[in-house]
Write a protein that binds this DNA or RNA. Sequence first.
DNA 1: CACTTGACCTGTCCGC
DNA 2: TGCGGACAGGTCAAGT
Length: 291
Amino acid sequence: MPELPEVETIRAGLARLLPQRKIEAVAVYDSPKSFPNGEEQTKQFLIGADVLRVRRRAKVLLIDLDTNYTLVVHLKMTGQLVFRGETNFGAGHPTDSLIGRLPDRSTRVQVDFIDGSHLFFNDQRKFGWIKLLPTQEVGYLSFFQKVGPEPLEETTTSEQFIGRVRRHNNMMIKPAILDQSVIAGVGNIYADEALWAAKIHPETRVGHLSDEQLNTLFKEIRAVLLLGIEKGGSTDKNYIDAEGRRGNYLSFARVFRREGQPCPVHPDQEIVKLKVAGRGTHICPVCQVVQ
DNA sequence: CACTTGACCTGTCCGC
DNA sequence: TGCGGACAGGTCAAGT
């Protein structure tokens, strides 16, 4: 579920909450994809380490430790990373939280800090994972070798985006922008929102789009991701931030999950849901026409 | 090689 | 109310 705005919101929360806390213990409940190099050995590497900082690249969280190791976390569809301080362990969580006392039955990994606080990795569908790697080696993960530029970095340009997306001239534009090697961090929600804003039908072939249209699309990708961050991400069923709070973006979404509702600019036209490249896709058939 | 499809999992929702 | 099937926001391997 989490796309760039959700992962960034979690990162910002963890960056305030985790640094300088020292790991006392780690429990792995049921997370077959986590710690592939031996659970027990990995735990020994973790115990006694302090958290230095929390970074994000694409949809991946990087928790750097003072031992030159990094916890690499991918939340995939239903992953959550929730911090509980000593004082709000249990009943003190925010009232709008989707979850109660932790650990619960979706908790896969629990990290205890010596000050009595905890970090929980919850994941209903078990697609997500946590790996421990030497910090220097994180960049060598195959995902990071091929992942595209960060859309919100000042140094990332529209020309870079256009150059990368044009490598897939035959592909439909929606699966092209979902491809993490084209641009990092866009997922199904923000893809639909950006394509609507750019007035581009998701099934249009990249080769049929002008540079001007792709430039507009890049600007709209940036805009929807920024709005997503501003609203604390999108909560449909599962997503919560590091403190258990829901995100509000979907209240501002213009097409995603709004089938049957009026298009914001064509009040007489209903948003339609279709399937594009296997993914649920939402469009205004007047705003967005296949070229 | 470029692109598409199925697999990974569990939970929920919808129609019969 | 019960049950089968479709579907869910991501990525990768396998297949065409």
